[in-house]
Design a protein around this nucleic acid. Structure first.
Lengths: 214, 214
DNA sequence: ACATGCATGTTACTTGCGGTAACACCAGTC
DNA sequence: GACTGGTGTTACCGCAAGTAACATGCATGT
């Protein structure tokens, strides 16, 4: 077994894989998550079985595709999270980074959020929590880690950080999703409003005249 | 055209529709969102074409099904939101109501959150925002309305309330989804942590030793 | 009584997609 | 020149969505 040959083959295989992923990317970007394996294969200039040899099944391809974009987005977010500025500014930068990303490529975003597969055909249907958008989970965990590292939350802080991580990510996601659909305001306003929410303005707001507040 | 006859037919049709929906409910609860039209028809003791006559297509059936559960859940949430207590207590009650619901029937919850269809086959693929879980949207709008009605948020308050409504719902959803999968703590603890987040504890927390905070 | 609607139900089909089996080609290696 | 391993193909299976086309029960109008 020659090492150089093996390396060459490996490199070429990886190269091929990357090409296939880029083709798949184009198709998903054009057709949305409904893209069929046939269409992807055609875009790549080949036929289905090759895709299956490389990625196992559709879930595998989608997972690989999702990983690429998720990694890229997470890198951006980490950069915003690590910027040298005070807390509020960092939070706003992170929110804005995420929103800018989904605004720039809504198709990709939509694909990442709704893989809509994940469950093996033979599953006894009860895997809630595992399949819902891995991107959200990864972002949640990442943010949780940052929070836990940098904030002093007292006893039980680690768990609190995880809850907050997932909660904040979910807030960002849902608000972004809604905003992307209705565009009721500018991105900057949205960022500001969300940061205000996280800064406790909900608790601080006064009651309206006429009854007890929410 | 006799009115009584028409009414009778209508009533019977509605009755049938309800029966079909309940059968579909059972199947979805048992098999998850992968339930096939054949399976649902079999459960109802009939065959496919009848389902299609009643609901148009699978999306129609799923939409009808989702509406039932969404309405039910929203009623519960409204009750929690309207309880006679102070703001923090209401928020906690609302969070707890939602979490209790998804905890009690994860299959239903999962079905509601991942319809995974929605787009017409002929769509020119760019309807981001419309298809992602109608339940989240409805809850967001509902909460926004409550917030706007009861809180004095100053100028731009209406828009702020909408952002917050969707944001809070998203936070609740994502945290609940994660919690349901990992069960890292009790429901009460989760509720408390999320309420703390909304109450500004993130902004108030002190930096950890060794560097600027998040 | 008989024909006319009309809703309800069926069987049998088409279409399209995920996934696979079997075969063909084209390097390099012994 | 036979052997091996990777790349590629065509042709197929299974399954689920969705659709004709036909059959039946039951009220009505003449």
């Amino acid at each position: 077994m020659d090492t150089t040959q093996r390396t060459d083959q490996q490199r070429s295989a990886d190269q091929r894989r990357r090409e296939l992923l880029e083709a798949a990317d184009r198709v998903v970007l054009r057709d949305g998550p409904h893209a069929s394996m046939n269409a992807i294969a055609a875009e790549a200039g080949i036929t289905k079985p090759i895709l299956y040899r490389h990625f196992g099944d559709k879930g595998g391809l989608y997972a690989a595709l999702a990983k690429r974009h998720t990694d890229a987005l997470l890198d951006s977010l980490r950069a915003a999270l690590d910027a040298p500025a005070e807390r509020r500014e960092r939070v706003e930068a992170t929110l804005d980074t995420y929103l800018a990303a989904i605004e720039a490529r809504p198709q990709v975003y939509r694909f990442l959020m709704h893989p809509a597969e994940g469950g093996q055909p033979g599953d006894p249907g009860f895997d809630v929590g595992k399949h819902s958008a891995p991107l959200l989970r990864r972002m949640g965990e990442e943010l949780a880690q940052v929070i836990e590292e940098r904030l002093d939350l007292g006893p039980g802080g680690q768990q609190l950080a995880r809850v907050w991580g997932h909660g904040i990510v979910g807030m960002m996601h849902a608000a972004g999703d809604w905003w992307l659909g209705e565009r009721p305001c500018s991105r900057a306003e949205l960022v500001r409003s969300l940061a205000d929410l996280l800064w406790g303005r909900l608790a601080a707001a006064g009651d309206r005249v006429g009854g007890p507040g929410f």
